[in-house]
Design a protein around this nucleic acid. Structure first.
Lengths: 300, 300
DNA sequence: CGGGGGTCACAGGCTCTGACTGTAACCGCC
DNA sequence: GGCGGTTACAGTCAGAGCCTGTGACCCCCG
């Protein structure tokens, strides 16, 4: 037989009271049962732990040595159980987060800082990724949650954290660059630079919709992936584009951001509903709370 | 229910193989029983540890956190059992040793050093005490073993470690101080200094015997307790006395040690038979081995 | 497309163990 | 000598843990 935690608990109880009778009463079992279990433990260890006779019970030398050992095992076991419970509450463990590259800039620092402060024992692993990788990672479990822009896909859940204005991005010196606000239709005759359609279909379907509502189809003179590339092309005078206002922190020379009337861009937290664990919920709470407290599009 | 070590062992087995079927086979129980126990553990912890379906078993995030915890508990338990076994072999624990003051001088350093080297995890507590305290301590368990001189009492076991010559101790310049050897009868007319009879009856009964065999009763002019006191009185010319040869290391001026023909003094290790534990046996082995290897009466 | 081999879960029955009660032996104190 | 205290021994019982039998499902291969 190999000792179980019960035997150690019984042993410690007897050792602390130096009486089978008293210990059994406190353990709420019969003295005979306690004696029996201690004998079983002694046999398993191959040694006597107590000297006992009709006038009482004393620890043997081996028992004296074993007492702190048994206490240590029990304490370690309690700690293990407690850790499991904390893990269940999402207070320890590991969380893989994806940030869309164009949102990583302003979202990642404050969110990560706030979460680390609230849940110091959660090991946060973050990555700035493209939209396709982000969605794929949420679906196959590589990421537990992500911060990105809608629209995504039906099988992912999202909660909107912040909204911000959408701007026309024009080269400095453009005839419309001095306006305080524009409508999308004002840019109907301009040459456009946009991201490749293949980068993320749902986005481009929404773009198509927007342009159709504005009554024109943009003349796309070049496609380039990534906000910095687009800004570079605009600054070079190749064409105009349209971006969320927070992108202006990435390039401040050669381009002008003019708000577009009635258009807003959202940043959302997304996750796979089948993997909605406590830690994800905790992250959502932190992110929502943060969005309510500060302007995340200006942060970072 | 509170988890037992069995549950942790089962959990680790499943987590390592990611298969109930394989783990059960290695644990030599049925897969169904293993499933049952894992479910019980999960209920006790209030959380799922595995995601399982028809195509296999994977750890949940909580399970991943709990796995090293469970391993740690099991390792701690193994260590505790191993410590108990080592304690049973007398390799860890505490040993209280008494040294008769007059033997502490030469016995204690080599014995303690040799034992510490062989059993570094045994906590050795040593004390130099008088003979009455030594015997009392062995009887009531204050000391596990002692190094002393016979005769003692019947209820203590002893093993002789070393024997040495007994000497007449004379003041420098005494008419017999130049002799290479004496017989006790040669000192029949001398004034004697001896220890008080009350110090230890069995010794004095042996002294009486010796003197009777030599054909005289000594004329005791003063009694003093402790070897240094006796040597001081001899050096002062108050009288002569009789001591084991090893005592000469305590005082080399004013006194002369002359061997007595045919008389030997022994040093023994003593213990109470009811408290003969493995550690005591180990100490005995070390002491006997040491006595065979070096001259303990000259050591220290 | 169907069958075989793999997964885990559920249901019912057997065994053994950890618990209980009752009893005995022993010690120390009044 | 009786009483209150200790632990140990013997016999009994309920339930925990394990077993077998079965079912549902998935994947791969022929």
């Amino acid at each position: 037989m190999t000792p179980e935690l019960r035997h150690l608990r019984y042993f410690v109880a007897v050792a602390e009271r130096l009486s089978f009778t008293v210990a059994a009463r406190e353990l709420r079992i019969a003295q005979q049962s306690l004696s029996q279990q201690i004998v079983a433990l002694e046999r398993a260890l191959g040694t006597r732990l107590f000297d006992r006779d009709t006038r009482g019970t004393r620890l043997t030398e081996v028992g004296r040595v074993f007492l702190p050992e048994a206490r240590a095992v029990l304490a370690r076991a309690d700690a293990a159980v407690e850790t499991a419970r904390r893990a269940e509450r999402g207070e320890v463990g590991r969380l893989h987060l994806a940030f869309l590259v164009s949102t990583a800039n302003y979202m990642m620092p404050p969110v990560v800082r706030a979460f680390r402060e609230r849940y110091p024992d959660v090991d946060l692993v973050t990555e700035a990724v493209g939209i396709a990788d982000l969605v794929g990672g949420l679906r196959d479990g590589r990421y537990d949650a992500a911060f990105t822009r809608p629209p995504l896909v039906d099988d992912l859940k999202t909660v909107t954290l912040v909204g911000e204005r959408v701007c026309a991005v024009l080269p400095t010196g453009h005839p419309l660059a001095g306006r305080a606000e524009l409508r999308l239709a004002d840019l109907a005759g301009e040459p456009w630079v946009l991201t490749p359609r293949g980068s993320w279909e749902p986005w481009h379907r929404k773009y198509d919709e927007d342009f159709r509502a504005a009554g024109f189809a943009p003349r796309v003179v070049q496609r380039a992936d990534g906000v910095p590339s687009l800004l570079g092309l605009v600054a070079a005078g190749v064409g105009v584009t349209r971006l969320a206002r927070s992108a202006h922190s990435l390039r401040r020379t050669g381009v002008v951001f003019v708000p577009l009337a009635g258009e807003r861009a959202e940043t959302v937290m997304a996750w796979h509903p089948g993997r909605y664990r406590r830690a994800v919920r905790n992250l959502l709470d932190v992110a929502v709370g943060l969005a309510a407290a500060i302007d995340l599009t200006e942060a970072g």
